[in-house]
């Protein structure tokens, strides 16, 4: 945690761009739905109006304002992606910490096989598989992401915990007679977290694209909710005559993902000592 805060104020060029892009999208995501005269899920007049005033991004096949919808979707997609990273990060890091410190080879061996097996599946395919079973919608999406993605964090956290297990300060806690729970929560997990957070940033890119992808395929967020993937899917039959229904939400989604990717890369370069 400390290393993250120490790094943040001194970002390099790429990371600056990332922060700038994200700040603009988040700001618009907060302001546009508040200030817009149009409702994101109700018709605002004629269908297929070309971009201009007052409809900056035009209107869609139901006459809804694409500009308002795009930034209402920003709120939903970014929130979902943050949760879609946070749940598996917490669960996986904890599991990895426990598995890295346990001395029982049978338990850790069995869990390792499960973790490797989950990671063996193509990410999107297994998430789709879980969604198909637990049901689509926001809740199903988050359950599926947590059920699949924790395994990646567990793998990372376990590797780090294994290194820590033999560190001097951990040996010291044993000499001092700390309980295993105390060692795990106060000494192992706080040291494992920074690694998970660093991976979480690049994982955010994968997760936000997966959320939009599942909604694009019709197995994620359900219409009429404004969501980037669902909007792109909406605009697909009208690609020829009304490109703006597809292009603007897609552009905003890509920019968000690029913003986070640049930030993640800037931080990685920074920690490797190159600019």
């Amino acid at each position: 945690m400390k290393s993250m805060t120490r790094v943040l104020p001194k970002l390099n060029g790429e990371a600056h761009w990332g922060v700038a892009i994200l700040a603009i999208i988040i700001l618009l995501g907060v302001l546009v739905p508040l200030l817009s005269p149009f409702n994101p899920i109700r018709s605002a007049g004629d269908t297929f109006i070309t971009p201009g005033m007052p409809h900056l991004f035009g209107t869609d096949q139901l006459g809804r304002d694409v500009f308002t919808r795009t930034f209402a979707a920003a709120q939903l997609d970014i929130t979902l992606a943050v949760l879609g990273v946070a749940f598996p990060l917490v669960i996986g890091t904890f599991m990895g910490g426990v598995l890295g410190t346990t001395r029982n080879p049978v338990v850790s061996g069995a869990w390792l096989i499960i973790i490797d097996a989950i990671n063996a599946f193509p990410f999107l395919a297994i998430v789709i598989g879980v969604v198909a079973m637990v049901g689509s919608g926001v809740q199903g999406l988050l359950i599926a992401l947590a059920a699949v993605n924790w395994a990646r964090y567990a793998k990372i956290a376990r590797a780090r915990a294994l290194q820590l297990r033999d560190a001097d300060f951990i040996h010291a806690t044993q000499v001092l007679g700390y309980s295993r729970v105390q060692v795990l929560t106060r000494h192992i997990l706080p040291n494992v977290y920074s690694e998970s957070l660093a991976y979480g940033l690049s994982d955010f890119v994968i997760v936000i694209i997966a959320i939009a992808g599942l909604s694009f395929l019709g197995v994620g967020v359900r219409p009429p909710e404004a969501e980037w993937g669902a909007m792109i899917s909406d605009g697909r039959p009208f690609l020829r005559q009304a490109w703006w229904i597809t292009v603007f939400p897609g552009l905003t989604l890509s920019l968000t993902a690029i913003g986070v990717a640049l930030l993640a890369q800037g931080l990685t370069n920074r920690s490797r000592g190159e600019d």
């Binding site: 890119v205 690609l239 020829r240 989604l253 890509s254 993902a257 690029i258 990717a261």
Partner: peptide
């Protein structure tokens, strides 16, 4: 930078644009 941008572009979006 270009490979970061490509990896952050969803395939269903780039697919539709190339289709167009």
């Amino acid at each position: 930078v270009a490979s970061s941008i490509l990896l952050a572009t969803p395939v269903f979006y780039s697919g539709l644009l190339l289709l167009l």
